[in-house]
């Protein structure tokens, strides 16, 4: 039985490696994205085998789902701009880049090979399943306020990391708005009528699933990031089915949603320090409600931010010359 599972592991490992190579080698960019998404799903499967369901969920939802959507949107944009949207073999939009010299490729291949061999040797000699945080986490779990260890790590033991991770998302959305600030309005990919109907049907269910994933995070795999990704998918469907159209008037609300998670997280972290405790040190008994509050707000922020990262431009910003109007007020 064990041997069969190990055989499965080996085959899955080889498949993952094969998909990685294929994604880089396949000529068509659309096929590349498909390979990458498949790679991500297989990776999630591998992590289930490694007893990491939270990570698998996050990888499937964010690493694969959101990244895949972003890649497809970009691909759509590239092909639309270069007018090759409907060409089946639309690969090279720009004139082909000067080829990398073969010698350089060979040298890099050798170097990467050596890196892999070196890392593999180091990995094999490392004490696998050796020292870890297991004991420390087990000791601290009763005081953490939640029952699921990964959630306890994310929102209590290493809450500082998680706050900064939400800050990274905020930085990303500001940077994306900045980059796309004077792009002409580009329509998001249009969905057919069937899909629009489907979207309207699916939306309420998806909201329920997202909230459930968030709620379940306290005791079982799931949590703010996975729940946020599901809700972000809802946002994408809303945007793509034109149920919701971002309007200039919504700009302030959007900004508020993006910072909501960071603001509440920061506020809680600092307020609990009032009574002589350390920053992020939740008072005993209040840990669970505070963590749920933070998780809820962070989920909303993540969902809004991921949807905005997909949508791109700040709502309602016209390209120049209307560009100066706001600054002049």
């Amino acid at each position: 039985m064990t041997d069969l599972l190990l055989l499965f592991d080996m085959l899955l490992g080889l498949l993952i490696i094969g998909l990685a190579v294929a994604a880089l080698r396949v000529r068509d960019l659309f096929a590349m994205v498909v390979m990458f998404v498949t790679f991500g799903l297989m990776t999630a499967l591998a992590w289930v085998r490694l007893a990491a369901p939270d990570v698998a969920l996050a990888e499937a939802a964010i690493g694969t789902g959101v990244t895949g959507a972003l890649l497809l949107k970009t691909l759509y944009h590239l092909r639309r701009v270069s007018g090759t949207l409907h060409l089946p073999e639309a690969l090279s939009e720009r004139p082909p880049d000067p080829q990398v010299p073969r010698a350089v490729i060979a040298a890099n291949a050798v170097m990467c090979g050596l890196v892999v061999i070196g890392l593999a040797a180091a990995f094999v000699t490392a004490p696998l399943g050796g020292p870890g945080f297991d004991a420390a986490v087990a000791d601290a779990m009763p005081e953490s306020g939640v029952d699921h260890p990964v959630t306890a790590v994310l929102l209590n033991f290493r809450a500082y990391d998680t706050l900064m991770e939400v800050v990274v998302l905020l930085a990303a959305v500001i940077a994306v708005w900045l980059v796309e600030r004077s792009l002409p309005q580009s329509d998001p990919p249009v969905m057919g009528e069937v899909y629009e109907g489907f979207a309207r049907l699916v939306l309420p269910g998806a909201v329920v699933v997202g909230v459930y994933v968030l709620w379940a995070g306290a005791v079982a795999p799931g949590g703010a990031f996975q729940g946020g990704a599901v809700l972000a998918a809802v946002g994408l469907l809303l945007l793509m089915s034109h149920v919701y159209e971002p309007a200039p008037a919504h700009r302030a609300a959007a900004r508020g949603l993006f910072v909501l998670g960071v603001a509440v997280f920061t506020g809680v972290a600092l307020l609990v320090a009032w009574g002589g405790r350390a920053v992020f040190e939740y008072p005993p008994g209040l840990a669970k409600p505070l963590i749920l509050l933070i998780e809820g707000m962070v989920t909303i922020s993540i969902a809004a931010t991921l949807a905005a990262l997909f949508h791109g431009r700040e709502p309602g910003v016209q390209p120049r010359p209307a560009d100066t109007s706001e600054g002049a007020q």
Binding site: D54, V55, V137, D161, L169, L306
Partner: peptide, 16 residues
């Protein structure tokens, strides 16, 4: 659980 939390953080950072 700690590396799991780190990887979730890493995935979100990489997507950003």
């Amino acid at each position: 659980p700690v590396p799991h939390a780190l990887v979730i953080t890493g995935i979100v950072v990489l997507v950003s």
